[in-house]
Amino acid sequence: MDVDAYLARLGVDRPAAADLATLRLLQERHLLAVPFENLSIHLGEPVELTEDALFDKIVRRHRGGFCYELNGLFAALLRALGYDAELHAAQVFHPDGTPGPPLDHAAIVVSLAEPWLVDVGFGKFSRLPLRLSGVDAQPDPGGDFLLLDAPHGDVDVLLDGVPQYRLERRPRPLADFVPMAWWQATSPASHFTKSLTCSRPTSQGRVTLSGDRLIETVDGVRHEVVLGTEAAVRLAYRVYFDLPLTRLPTPPGESPLTSGALSPTLP
Rank of each mutant, 00 (worst) to 15 (best):
P115E: 00
L112F: 09
G143A: 07
G123S: 13
F122M: 05
H105G: 11
L132D: 04
Q164N: 09
D140A: 12
F145S: 04
K124F: 01
H152M: 10
P95I: 01
R131D: 08
L117E: 12
V135G: 15
G161V: 13
V109W: 02
D144Q: 09
R127W: 06
G121N: 03
D104S: 07
D140F: 09
G97N: 10
P102I: 00
L146P: 15
D96G: 13
D96V: 08
W116T: 13
L132P: 15
Q164T: 10
L148M: 11
Q138M: 04
T98L: 02
W116L: 04
Q164L: 12
V135Y: 12
R127V: 12
P141C: 05
P101N: 04
P139M: 02
D144K: 12
G123H: 07
G134K: 14
V120G: 07
Q138L: 01
D156P: 09
P102R: 05
V135P: 15
L159V: 11
D119K: 00
D144A: 10
H152L: 12
H94W: 05
K124C: 08
V120W: 00
T98Q: 08
L148V: 12
V120L: 04
S126A: 13
L159K: 09
L130Y: 06
L103G: 14
H105Q: 06
T98H: 13
A113V: 08
D119G: 01
V110C: 09
H152Y: 06
D149M: 07
D149L: 04
F125H: 08
D154A: 10
D136G: 03
P141W: 00
S111F: 03
R131L: 01
Q164F: 10
P102G: 03
P163D: 01
D156A: 04
L158H: 04
P139L: 02
D136I: 00
G143P: 13
L146H: 14
V120K: 02
L148N: 11
L148F: 05
L112N: 14
L130F: 03
G161R: 11
D140K: 06
L167K: 11
A107M: 01
R127Y: 10
D160A: 14
S133H: 14
A113F: 08
F145M: 08
F145Y: 08
P102Y: 00
R166T: 03
D140P: 14
L167W: 06
Q138K: 08
D154W: 05
P151Q: 02
P99F: 00
L167N: 05
Q164S: 14
L146F: 06
D96C: 13
D136V: 00
A113D: 05
P115N: 02
A107L: 00
D104M: 02
G123M: 09
D96I: 12
D136K: 12
F125P: 15
V118I: 06
H152R: 12
V118H: 04
H94Q: 07
D104K: 08
P102T: 01
V135L: 10
D149E: 07
G161M: 11
L117T: 11
V109Q: 02
K124P: 15
F125M: 13
P99T: 03
S111W: 03
H152G: 13
P129F: 03
D156G: 04
G143E: 07
H105M: 02
D96P: 15
P101R: 04
E168V: 13
F145T: 03
V109R: 13
P163S: 07
